[in-house]
Design a protein around this nucleic acid. Sequence first.
DNA 1: CAAAAAAGCCAAAGCGCTTTGGAAGACTCT
DNA 2: AGAGTCTTCCAAAGCGCTTTGGCTTTTTTG
Lengths: 340, 340
Amino acid sequence: MNLKQLAHMLALSQTTVSRALNGYPEVNEETRRRVMDAAKRHGYRPNPSARRLATGKTGMIGYVLPTGASVDIDPHFVEFLSGLGDYARSHELDLVLSPADADDQETTYRRIVANRQVDAVYISSPRPADRRVGLVNTLGIPFIVHGRSEGFDFDYPFTDIDNEGAFHEASRLLIQLGHRRLALINGDDRETFAIHRERGVRRALAASGLALGERHVCSVVMTEENGYRATRRLLEAGDAPTAIVCSSLIMALGVVRAVRDLGLTIPGDISLIAHDDVFPWLRPENFSVPLSTTRSSIRLAGARVAERLAARISGLEEGARGEVWPVDLVVRGSVAGAPA
Amino acid sequence: MNLKQLAHMLALSQTTVSRALNGYPEVNEETRRRVMDAAKRHGYRPNPSARRLATGKTGMIGYVLPTGASVDIDPHFVEFLSGLGDYARSHELDLVLSPADADDQETTYRRIVANRQVDAVYISSPRPADRRVGLVNTLGIPFIVHGRSEGFDFDYPFTDIDNEGAFHEASRLLIQLGHRRLALINGDDRETFAIHRERGVRRALAASGLALGERHVCSVVMTEENGYRATRRLLEAGDAPTAIVCSSLIMALGVVRAVRDLGLTIPGDISLIAHDDVFPWLRPENFSVPLSTTRSSIRLAGARVAERLAARISGLEEGARGEVWPVDLVVRGSVAGAPA
DNA sequence: CAAAAAAGCCAAAGCGCTTTGGAAGACTCT
DNA sequence: AGAGTCTTCCAAAGCGCTTTGGCTTTTTTG
C-alpha cells in the first residue's frame, strides 16, 4: 500500500494525503481525519527510502565505530547503548553503527554525512582537540559529544560528567582520613576524562600542600590485568601509596587481587576508591570489601544523549550548550584512616 | 557530483555510466575504463538513498535490540560487535540497531523488513522454538542465527559453538579427577546455549553412573552477584559439590569470592571450570587461581556471522547450513583431584 | 554479399515520497 | 457586485539512481 494507492482510494491527490498525514495546516480537518483514518485502517506506512530521497531525513542517528584486529570496544559502550536504545525506541529512531578503521575515522564521517545516511551523530571518548569534533562541526551535521574535548575556538554541545570534581572529592576524603601518598590508576591519558580526573586528584592534593608522586600516577587501558600490574608496581616500589584512586571497576578487580597477593588488606593497608559507571553485572557493593566509588550511570548518559540528538534533529535544541553532571561519592568499606 | 552530471561530463547517457560502474557486460571495456576513471577522479559516489529506492538494497545489516528499563544488554554483545564490525568495515557494510520493546520484537522485525531497511539480519541468544526465527524465516529476509534454536519443521542457517560438547568435556575431566558431586551455575535456562550446556554436564555424569543433583544446578542472569549467591547456596547446603562448572567468567568472579568467603580454597576444596568468551578486559589466567576454561572467542563468531550475512546478501551462500564450532578446554590451576 | 546476430549505447519509465506553484471556490469587505 | 483574501486542494516537478525496451552500428554467418 503506497501513497498513490491510498490517494486514489480516497479520491484525493497524493499532495493532500501526504500533507494530511504530515500535519500540514492547509488541509481541512475533516479531510485530515478521513485520511488518517484510512491510513490506519489499511496500515499504510510511508516508504522510508522514498521519504529519505525526497527529504534527506533518515530517522537514524549514527555512530562511527572504531574497529580493527587490535581495537577493543569498551565494555562501557554496551551500557551506554542500553540507555541510548531505550530512548531511541520510544521515538522510533534507529542507530546505525558505521565501522571504521580506528586510524581513519574521518573518511567514514565524511561518507555518512555526504550520503546523508543519518540525521545526527554522537561522538564518544573524546580527546583534547579531538579531530572528530572539528570535523563534524564543519560538516554541519547535528551532533552531541559524550564527554568533553578541549582547545577549540568554537563551542560545541556535549554531555559529560564532572570527572574532575568527582576525583577531587574522592581524593579530598582520603586526605582528610590522613592519607598523604595517593596514587591514581587512570585510563588512557590521551582521553579528556582521564586528564580531568588526574587534575581533580592533583588539585585536592595541592590544597593540602601535597603532590601526586611522579610514579604514583599511571595511565593504562582499563583491564583487570592492567589494574593488577599497576598496583603491584605501586606497592612494591619504595614510597608506596596508602590510598589508590582508580578509574574503573574492572581495574579495581585487579587492584584488589594485587593487594591480596601482596599480603596486604583493604582498607587496613590500602584505601581504595574507584569510579563506577554502574554495570548491572559487576557492583561495587559486592566486592570482597565493599568498594567506595564515584558513581555515575553511563546508561542515563546514553538516554540523555539520545534525547538531545532527537531534540537537535527536530530543531528543538540549538546552540552549543554543554552540560556537566555531578557525580556521587559513595563511601563503603574500602576506605579507612591512613595506617600509622 | 551526481550521476547526471557525471554522464553529461562524459557525453554519455546515465544508463551507460551506471552500467559501466556496476560492472554490467553490455558496455565497451574502453568506455568502462573512461567512466571508472572519471568517477574516481571526481570522487563520485552514488547516492545510497537513491540507490535504495531504485533497488531495494541498503548495504546494511540489521539487529533488533531488545531494550527497556529493566533490560540489560549482555556485555558479550560488545565483543561480538567487535568482530562483526571488523568484518563489516572491510566490506562497506553498516549495522543498524533497531531498538525494540523486549516483549514485542515482532513489530520491529516486521517494520524493518516491510520498509526494506536492511538487507539481512542476525538473531542472537535464541531460545528453543524462538519465535524470531520463525518470523524472519517467513518474512523471507536473509538471516543468520548466532546460536541455535530448536523444534522447527524447517532448517535455518546458524553459527554456534559446541556448548554441549564443551561442558561435557569439562565435566568429564572433573569426574576423572575423582569428583562425584558436580554443580552447574548456568545462564538463563530459557536460552538454548544453557540447555545444551546442562545436557553436556548430565551426559558426562551419566556416563559414570552419576547424576546432577536437583539442587546442584541453577540458572541465573550472568552477573557477579548471582555467581556469588549461587555458590553460597551450593556450598552451605548439605551434600555440597566438590566441583563447579560455570557458564561465564563474570559469574566465576562471584564464585571465587564466595569460596573465599566461606574459608575454602580453589582447587583444594572446590574445583572450578568456567566458560570463557574471551574478553580483552578479564582473562581467566589472571584470576587469583588461574581459571580453567572452556574457551571460544565470541569475537570470531561475530566476524563469521558478518561474513555469512554478506555472503547471503550477495547470493554466494544459500540453504540452511548450520555450523558448530568446537570449543577449547584449557586447563589451568583451578582444577584438582576431589578432596578426600 | 545480404541476412542474422551481437555489441554498444540511449531515452524514458519507474522507485514512492515531498514540495512548489497554482487554481478553484468560498468568504469578507467596501 | 466586484475586488481582494482565505481556504482547500491539485498537477507536476523534483530527489538520484536502476532498468526496460529499443535503436544503431558493427561483426558474424551461410
